[in-house]
Design a protein around this nucleic acid. Structure first.
Lengths: 212, 212
DNA sequence: CGGCATCCGTGACGATACTG
DNA sequence: CAGTATCGTCACGGATGCCG
């Protein structure tokens, strides 16, 4: 049990950092925004985190009301971690960090890990201003899928095919394009207009995206 | 020289945390958003930071383009640290953290430090939606002043009287009121309407505030 | 006196090994 | 699969000293 290390400042930003300022915590939140995850999944998608630190963070987050631990019903009974409503409210923090970090992202370094759902945060930002809806995204040829949506009280994005009938499907023409979007060099609207992202679908959202 | 510890993830949020995720860094940014500060001022307003960590963070921030070190012209020649434009762009990150942290701020603990300018962040949020302008705030009877403004390229807030003729002056009726505003229990508009914040001034901003 | 650098004790962290 | 145990290392916090 970590005996909470606090900045001891009567300031809400400092208090927020008391809870989520530790190393790895916000990245765990980013992972769990993709929906419930098992310990091993988290460990696999957060290269470099040690097992004890991950376990410790998950305990702290549960104690602080950011996440819960739940046993999945059989078959496949396992423990999954998921965010509480309070934890999901950290999305704007990650968005602000992500927007700021676009300026320093640069090219991918050989040592950099990549996961498809990390790309969901800039995608969500790119979809702001458009109507809500479920969007399935193919980042490259093949099966490199992500989905992004606005379901209240549930996951905001995830790997793989969308968990339902998507309102629109986006197909990127390659890593250059989604890389540029992640770096903030290209907006989603621009990418669609330039033909670097194909929009498929009949729903209102798909039409909006095509008509920017 | 810190040999940069990175998460090594191709994700702009993770990259942002590479730069500002270390302990104290974002709080130093919060301090410097109030304008140029000397080393000793920073050390005094960040109780608990050790001298070497503060010096190390300031060096890292300068190396990373977040802040610069400048020598003040005599008299009173001293070094001051100030944010670059890039560093000032972290304001939304602090705002997102502060907005989220309102929910866990609670009552002031005996061990909590307080500074008047820490209150400027929630005040800035409360002024969003109103016209821009320079606002001077008296938090309690006496000389407990803060100012908040929207001068591009300069400090966003600070202690003491406003550095110019303010467009509006706000007077809080006591610590309960600005505490409630800091905790998010009360919006600035509500506080004005309830008579807990007095608005003085003839400018458009002052009128807007009175007429919510 | 302001602005650090140095030293030291403690705790956080990262890697690996191991267990129910 | 989901962690706990162990251990070396490094970051941090506190105190002191130095140097302009």
């Amino acid at each position: 049990m970590s005996p909470r290390r606090s900045y001891d400042q009567y300031c809400s930003a400092a208090r927020a950092l008391d809870l989520v300022g530790d190393r790895w915590t916000l990245l765990i939140v980013r992972e769990l925004l993709a929906g419930p995850r098992r310990y091993t999944d988290l460990h696999a998608d957060l290269p470099g985190v040690s097992t004890d630190v991950l376990a410790s963070r998950l305990r702290d987050m549960e104690r602080d009301g950011l996440s819960t631990r739940r046993r999945l019903p059989p078959p496949g009974a396992a423990y999954v971690y998921e965010l509480t409503a309070r934890g999901r409210e950290l999305l704007p923090v990650l968005q602000a960090l992500g927007a700021w970090g676009e300026g320093v992202l640069g090219e991918r370094r050989p040592t950099d890990a990549v996961r498809a759902h990390w790309f969901a945060l800039p995608l969500l930002r790119g979809l702001e201003g458009f109507g809500a809806g479920l969007v399935e995204v193919r980042l490259e040829e093949g099966e490199f899928h992500v989905w992004v949506g606005a379901e209240e009280g549930a996951a905001l994005y995830g790997d793989g095919p969308a968990p339902g009938e998507p309102d629109a499907r986006l197909s990127f023409d390659g890593a250059d394009t989604w890389g540029a979007l992640g770096r903030g060099e290209l907006s989603l609207a621009e990418a669609v207009r330039a033909g670097r992202v194909e929009v498929v679908g009949e729903g209102g959202l798909a039409k909006e995206l095509r008509e920017v």
